[in-house]
Design a protein around this nucleic acid. Structure first.
Lengths: 136, 136
DNA sequence: ACTCTGGATCGATGGACATCGATCCAAACA
DNA sequence: TGTTTGGATCGATGTCCATCGATCCAGAGT
């Protein structure tokens, strides 16, 4: 039983939590570790572009096949980056038939944005970008 | 002339640029590289706490001596992290007499927050937290 | 069942990075 | 001019990570 391991579920595997704004009071160790994990996920140009491609794609989701040809990188590498984004709670992936579709988790970016905002403009956040229900 | 190099100026040494929201349209290579550098700077728990400590410190600035004892880390390490934050355009440092004071660059966090916001709520951004003019 | 194709996982590798001790510089004070 | 102290730089080291080729798994078609 060394190979043939885990049945991937492509859903997120992470982290949620509620963060207080960075500027209000010094954040403690555990908050920092959690938050840093998310920022680290965004601290790579390829992952940022992937995130942006997914977020700005029509229908709110993008197929991995579309994402792959944008870069001069191999499949495994793209797959790795998508996994990092998934584990950071930024995106989620779903297989439908032959292809796998990724979408940005609706609240993730808004919550991050709030953390960086001193006052907390918390109501506007994300205006729900249509969400494209595809299943069935 | 191998040692005795550069006269540090502790001001920022970076990056500025104007980013478009992540969600609107896929960001291009150079935008991604630039933005990723900032997020990478925030992708470390220690640096995030440093940033938060500086931002939330009374007067809008914090002395390095205050920052150092918060962590179980040596001076060089803290100094290194502060340099990374500086080069990312997030903070700036100024020596006054014996001590060095860091403060968060006023627009930096607000701009980041905007990047993560789909619509662009761009007016509120940072309500200028007093700024504590200390010199003289 | 065999094949094909889209993607994920595994294992290896080269480069980046966090951390440290040693050193150096700058201001303050003797 | 020495001495002291706050911080930055240098150089070394161990770890993490981005990328790859090889392999494996899942659906779709034959």
């Amino acid at each position: 039983m060394s190979k043939q391991a885990n049945r991937v579920d492509l859903a997120r595997t992470s982290i949620v939590g509620c963060w207080s704004p960075l500027v209000g009071e010094p954040l403690d160790e555990s908050q920092a570790v959690e938050l840093a994990r998310v920022f680290k996920a965004m601290g790579d140009p390829v992952r940022l572009r992937l995130l942006s491609l997914i977020a700005s794609h029509s229908g709110g989701e993008a197929c991995v096949c579309d994402l792959t040809d944008v870069f001069e990188l191999t499949g495994p590498t793209i797959s790795h980056h998508l996994k990092v984004l998934r584990e950071a709670g930024l995106v989620t992936g779903e297989r439908r038939g032959t292809w796998v579709y990724y979408r940005v988790l609706p609240e993730s970016l808004g919550r991050l944005s709030d953390v960086l905002t001193p006052a907390a403009v918390t109501e506007l956040s994300i205006p729900a970008p249509a969400q494209a229900v595809v299943g069935a």
